[in-house]
Amino acid sequence: MSTDALGSLMSGGGVPAAGTATTDVRPSSGKATAALVLGIVGLLLVPIVCSTLAIIFGALAMGDTSKDPQLQGRGQAIAGLVLGIVGLVAGVLLFMALMGGSDSGSGY
């Protein structure tokens, strides 16, 4: 065995071991990841702003993953979209409850 082949095997290169499967690495949608993160943050911290952005990024990511079958992240896009919708509805209801409570002195 030559020193080049030995060096290649020692450095992790070379032939994969028998029985190991090689994984096909496909790109993931950054918009889908952003939608999921914004959806979670929208539920916890800033509901109206982050949830609206989660809905936008989720819809864009779903379109991207539909057009390009090699692009992963459709599940993240759907989760971000759903979390965005839930967060936006909760944020609007919370806003309405807070605004409705401050009108109690009007006499109506």
Rank of each mutant, 00 (worst) to 15 (best):
M1F: 02
M1L: 06
M1A: 09
S2Y: 11
D4T: 10
A5D: 12
A5W: 10
A5T: 14
A5K: 14
L6A: 06
L6E: 03
L6Q: 01
L6T: 05
S8P: 00
M10C: 03
S11L: 09
G13S: 09
G13K: 13
G14F: 01
G14P: 01
V15A: 04
V15C: 01
V15I: 12
P16Q: 02
P16C: 01
A17W: 05
A17T: 02
A18F: 11
G19C: 02
T20I: 12
T20W: 03
A21Y: 03
A21G: 00
T22V: 10
T22I: 12
T23E: 10
T23L: 13
T23D: 07
T23K: 14
V25E: 08
R26E: 10
R26P: 05
R26A: 14
S28L: 12
S28N: 10
S29Y: 09
G30V: 04
K31R: 15
A32Y: 14
T33R: 13
A34D: 11
A34L: 12
A34G: 08
A34N: 08
A35M: 01
A35K: 05
A35I: 02
A35Y: 05
L36G: 11
L36S: 15
L38I: 06
L38R: 05
G39T: 03
G39W: 00
G39N: 01
V41M: 11
G42E: 00
L43W: 05
L44T: 15
L45I: 13
L45F: 15
L45D: 11
V46L: 09
I48V: 12
I48P: 00
V49Y: 14
C50Y: 12
S51R: 00
S51V: 01
T52R: 04
T52V: 08
A54D: 05
A54S: 15
A54F: 09
I56R: 11
F57P: 01
F57R: 02
F57G: 00
G58H: 03
G58V: 01
A59Q: 12
A59F: 14
G63Y: 07
S66Q: 12
K67P: 03
D68K: 13
D68G: 11
P69W: 09
Q70L: 07
L71W: 12
L71V: 15
Q72G: 10
G73D: 09
R74F: 02
G75R: 04
G75T: 07
Q76D: 10
G80L: 09
G80Y: 12
L81H: 06
L81C: 07
V82M: 08
V86S: 05
V86W: 01
V86R: 05
G87S: 02
G87E: 03
G87M: 00
G87Q: 03
L88A: 13
V89K: 04
V89W: 02
V89P: 03
A90C: 12
A90R: 12
A90Q: 13
A90P: 08
G91I: 06
G91H: 02
G91N: 04
G91M: 04
G91Q: 08
L94C: 07
L94D: 11
F95K: 06
M96R: 10
A97V: 02
A97K: 03
A97Q: 05
L98E: 07
M99Y: 08
G100L: 09
G100Q: 09
S102H: 13
S102V: 15
D103L: 08
S104Q: 11
S104E: 08
S104I: 07
G105Y: 05
S106C: 11
G107W: 14
Y108V: 08
Y108M: 06
